[in-house]
Design a protein around this nucleic acid. Structure first.
Length: 485
RNA sequence: GCAGUCAUAGUAUAGCCUGGUUAGUAUUCGGGGUUUCCAACCCUGUGACGCGGGUUCGAAUCCCGCUGACUGCACCA
């Protein structure tokens, strides 16, 4: 289904919608999740916990969103997370200073250079606005982090631009108190904040967004010694190589040198198995190795997990081998010791990161699950039952003859065990359609026969077929059908 | 951030050019009825001119600013 239809569904059924929408000064890049969206998000995260955190015995933390200045001095975000920009005095057009200079004067100035260097070069080479020939104002830094002031003294701090910094900062304590052993995964779900220049397309480019990040700390000397690699060695990865996507097992990818080591391949394998279970169409996915220029400033080797949608390839996960970039910078800045013992070796761990964009993942799940059933004139969200915002609708065929009361009874029986929705009003077909649209995989209908033999019908969303079962069996059936895989 | 297009109920739209009755329609939604297993029907009700200025006796309509959405460019660490 396309972006437009997903957007319509999102607005009509309260999956997500613009933040502060009743006010005229609402800013772009901020969206809220409604009840249905939250329900899917929570279930998606439960799946993530099962398939990655628990499976790999990772530790999950929940850190602060506001972090002190030193953290970002050490992480490099204060220096590198900013673009040098110049603005035309006449027409107001803004350019990236380094890019414009490289283009016009053919001189490479690193983007982290002093601002005066850009001004000097612009003077020297007499660079003017490409559009109106106007003069440029002095270069400025546009930092994508949101600055906040703490307390009455307005102490400088920042909203985190990625969740992982708390994981790095917390690593020494966690390793000691949780009896850590390399390789050790530490995970976190939470919000991050980036002052994007042009937020776009609802959940796909936000200023405030959810990440589920995993940082795996490892001994860099043992990247090919990983016993659990055998668990995923036959898992098939889809990897972009030059112009085509090649499908190969994790084992083959390492043997052919497509992936540098077993360690990285293991986590790409886990990630593949996870996304298969979200119901995203994996035939439309790929891992893409990033080139030198595309990589983040902290990354050594980087693979993006991307999925093709109706608005193009979307990056859902960034997998970065960050080496000891973060731990050594924080060690230097804080004087804290980050070396740990790995058997008899004292090592400064390296980090492999799996940084997942939750909002984009949810969008993709919706886009890949939503379909139009023309034959039956309905929109169906064929989402995996364990991710569905509502598991089951509980309906009375008619309100009268005591069926409503009987339906209430059935609802009370299951309401705390499943996400269920009670509905008596209107035609039965309409109620089924409403449930189809929010992806409820099952509908239970109480009819006249129920009063005679205590049976109800269960209707399945995808094929609209119905079975008659005893009320006493409902819990078992639903538990089985909505269970995580 | 730049350029173009646009902004009316939950959703989709008409009206705007040419200012003037109660802002129309479809669907959704609430209540009632009838029928009963796939958006039927009948009655009834709720619900909108993005925000701020200006012009005017009078603004959804004309003008200005802001905000947002879409598309393209740039950006995406």
């Amino acid at each position: 289904m396309n972006y437009e239809s997903v957007m319509k569904l999102a607005l009509e059924r309260a999956f997500y919608f613009p933040s502060c929408e009743i006010y005229g000064d609402a800013q772009a890049g901020f969206w809220e999740y409604g009840p249905t969206g939250v329900s899917v998000k929570n279930k998606f995260l439960e799946l993530w916990r099962r398939e990655l955190v628990r499976r790999d015995r990772m530790l999950e933390i929940d850190g602060s969103q506001i972090m002190s200045k030193s953290v970002f001095e050490a992480s490099g975000h204060l220096g590198n997370f900013a673009d040098p920009i110049i603005k035309c005095k006449k027409c107001g057009l803004t350019f990236r200073a380094d890019k414009l200079i490289a283009e016009i004067a053919n001189v490479e100035i690193p983007e982290s250079a002093d601002l005066e260097d850009f001004d000097k070069m612009i003077q020297e080479k007499n660079i003017v606005c490409t559009k109106c020939k106007g003069e440029f104002d002095v270069a400025k830094k546009f930092n994508m982090m949101f600055r906040v002031g703490i307390g009455p003294e307005d102490v400088e701090a920042y909203l985190r631009p990625e969740t992982c910094q708390s994981i790095f900062v917390d690593f020494p304590r966690l390793f000691k108190t949780m009896r850590g052993k390399l390789p050790l995964g530490i995970a976190q779900v939470g919000k991050s904040f980036r002052n994007e220049i042009a937020p776009r397309q609802s959940l796909l480019r936000l200023r405030e967004f959810y990440q589920a990040e995993i940082e795996v700390f490892c001994n860099p000397g043992k990247l090919n010694e990983l016993e659990k690699f055998s668990e995923i060695e036959n898992t098939k990865l889809r990897i972009q190589i030059s112009d085509g996507i090649q499908v190969m097992t994790c084992k083959e990818a390492v043997e052919k040198g497509v992936i540098p080591n077993k360690f990285v391949a293991y986590y790409l394998g886990l990630l593949t198995e996870f996304y298969e279970k979200t119901g995203i169409d994996m035939e439309k996915s790929r891992f893409r190795k990033l080139g030198e220029k595309e990589k983040a400033f902290y990354a050594d080797v980087a693979f993006d997990f991307e999925v093709n949608t109706t608005i193009g390839w979307l990056e859902l996960v960034a997998c970065n081998y960050r080496s000891d970039y973060d731990l050594s910078s924080h060690a230097k800045m804080s004087k804290e010791k980050f070396e740990v013992m790995d058997n008899d070796d004292k090592v400064l761990p390296h980090v492999f990161e799996i940084s997942m964009g939750i909002d984009r993942s949810l969008y993709t799940i919706l886009e890949h699950s939503l379909r139009e059933d023309k034959e039956n004139e309905r929109m169906v969200l064929s989402i995996k039952p364990y991710l569905a915002p509502t598991h089951v609708g509980v309906l009375s065929l008619v309100k009268k003859d005591g069926l409503a009361e009987k339906t209430d009874e059935v609802y009370r029986l299951i309401r705390t065990k499943f996400d269920s929705f009670l509905d008596h009003s209107g035609a039965i077909g309409r109620r089924y359609r409403r449930l189809d649209e929010i992806g409820a995989p099952f509908a239970i209908t109480v009819d006249h026969q129920t009063k005679e033999d205590n049976t109800v019908t269960i209707r399945r969303r995808d094929d609209m077929a119905q079975d008659r079962v005893n009320i006493s069996e409902l819990e078992t059936i639903l538990a089985k059908e909505t269970a995580y895989p």
